[in-house]
């Protein structure tokens, strides 16, 4: 190993080999995947757009992915399905529109691949995001106060606001919780996380 060029060639070969196997071939395989169309003519998955896409940005920017995965494991690998995190395993086709992928590697909190199906209540999402202790006492999820405004009750309820009971409110008075635009986008995104449609390859 005394000639640098042959050494470099060897070193390059190893990495290009693995790049081939772990990036290019999988990418080529996944590029063949197309959305499926169900009986009602709706195609799945759908590309995120509008507020869902904006909400995805908020999800990334607030770093939700460090505590939440977005992938359901199969029925014989963990208890994801029994926990109600999904009705079937996730497969590569579910992610064809994901840029970047948000699969995650930690489950400090529950998986969110199907949170839109599991928790369809916007109100719950707002209360939980504002302060997880309200809906999930003992949670270690951080509060996202800065995505909300708290308005005293008295005037008319601001559009899109939800009720905050006195003990949940930081002012200790019954109030309205007004989500900011970003909070609304984020919840739109969470609502859109619903991969309950069926895929042929997902039954293994």
């Amino acid at each position: 190993m005394n000639r640098s060029w042959s050494f470099i060639a060897g070193v390059l070969a190893t990495i290009l080999f693995s790049m081939m196997g772990l990036i290019f071939v999988p990418n080529w395989q996944f590029e063949q995947l197309k959305p499926v169309v169900d009986q009602n003519g709706i195609s799945h998955p759908t590309p995120p757009a509008g507020s869902v896409l904006l909400g995805r940005e908020v999800y990334i920017s607030e770093g939700c992915l460090y505590c939440h995965s977005q992938q359901v494991r199969s029925a014989d690998f963990g208890a994801d399905i029994q926990r109600g995190w999904g009705t079937r395993r996730s497969v590569a086709r579910d992610y064809i529109f994901d840029r970047p992928h948000l699969m995650g590697t930690m489950r400090t909190g529950p998986d969110l691949e199907n949170i839109g199906a599991r928790q369809p209540s916007r109100e719950w999402q707002y209360l939980h995001l504002f302060n997880p202790q309200i809906t999930s006492p003992g949670s270690i999820m951080p509060p996202f106060h800065f995505l909300f405004k708290v308005v005293d009750k008295g005037g008319p309820a601001p559009v899109g606001s939800v009720d905050l009971t006195a003990n949940a409110s930081p002012t200790k008075k019954a109030s309205y919780l007004v989500p900011s635009g970003r909070a609304q986008d984020l919840v739109d995104f969470l609502m859109s996380l619903n991969h309950s449609y069926d895929l042929p390859e997902a039954h293994q």
Binding site: R118, Q119, S121, W124, L127, I134, T135, S136, P137, D163, T165, A166, N167, A168
Partner: peptide, 15 residues
């Protein structure tokens, strides 16, 4: 459980 809690006691005022 997300709302009604694993204790079944709910959340005062809400659930």
């Amino acid at each position: 459980m997300q709302c009604h809690q694993d204790t079944g006691k709910g959340i005062p005022g809400t659930y």
